[in-house]
Computed example of a mutant assay.
Amino acid sequence: MTAYWNALFGGLLIGVSAVLLLIANGRVAGISGIVGRLLAGQRVLDNGAFVLGLVLGPLVFAGLNGSLPAMTISASWPWVMLAGLLVGFGTRMGSGCTSGHGIIGLARFSRRSLAATVMFLAAGILTASLMELVQ
């Protein structure tokens, strides 16, 4: 059970921060929208603080735990970059990302977010299954 504490507390922190952002600023904690607004020069202070928190979060974790969790990326950097571009394209096409739809949208009982989250999960399961077959 102790192996799940970090995930549990991480999930709680994500949920609490998303709710606080919604209550305090009336903004949905969708990463793609926040980064998009930051790059467009809109609400630079708010959006910049949010993105800075995303960058500093792992550093705080490493400081508290002595190191970052072990992680292995088996794909080459060109594949990782292509995947990132496809995710960015998909978030624009889907009018939001997994964080906006999956965390806040579902909590607000949005049918559009439910449909988007089902599609995210289905695409992830299909991709993982296909990748397992290819390897």
Rank of each mutant, 00 (worst) to 15 (best):
G94V: 13
L8V: 08
G11V: 03
L20G: 00
V19M: 03
R111S: 08
H101M: 02
G30W: 03
P69E: 03
G105C: 07
A70N: 02
M93P: 00
L8W: 07
A18E: 01
P78L: 12
M119F: 14
M119K: 01
V80N: 04
G90M: 10
L133N: 12
M93D: 01
L39I: 14
S32I: 06
V118T: 15
S95M: 05
P69A: 07
A116R: 10
G96P: 04
A70Y: 04
L68V: 04
G63L: 11
L114Q: 14
L68R: 03
R37P: 01
G11W: 05
S67D: 04
N47K: 11
G90S: 12
T98A: 12
S67V: 03
L56G: 11
P58W: 02
W79F: 03
G11F: 02
I73K: 03
F9W: 11
R112S: 13
M119Q: 07
G53N: 11
L59W: 11
A128W: 12
M81G: 02
P69R: 05
V28L: 00
M131A: 09
R111F: 08
Q135C: 01
I14N: 01
N6F: 00
E132D: 09
V118M: 15
I31V: 15
G53L: 07
L8I: 14
G96H: 05
G100W: 11
L126G: 02
S74W: 01
M131F: 12
L38K: 06
L59S: 09
I73Q: 10
G94N: 14
A128Q: 10
G41M: 04
S110A: 06
A70G: 01
A70C: 00
G88H: 11
S129C: 02
A62K: 13
V35T: 13
G33T: 01
F89N: 06
I14V: 09
A123M: 11
Q42C: 08
M119T: 15
S74Q: 14
A83E: 08
L52M: 14
L39V: 15
S99R: 04
R108A: 09
L21S: 00
M93V: 09
A115Y: 12
S113R: 00
I31W: 05
R92L: 14
P58G: 08
Y4A: 09
V19D: 02
M131I: 10
I14A: 10
S67E: 13
L130I: 13
G48N: 14
I103A: 12
H101A: 06
N25F: 09
W79K: 06
G10V: 05
L114M: 13
L86D: 07
S74H: 06
N6K: 06
A29C: 10
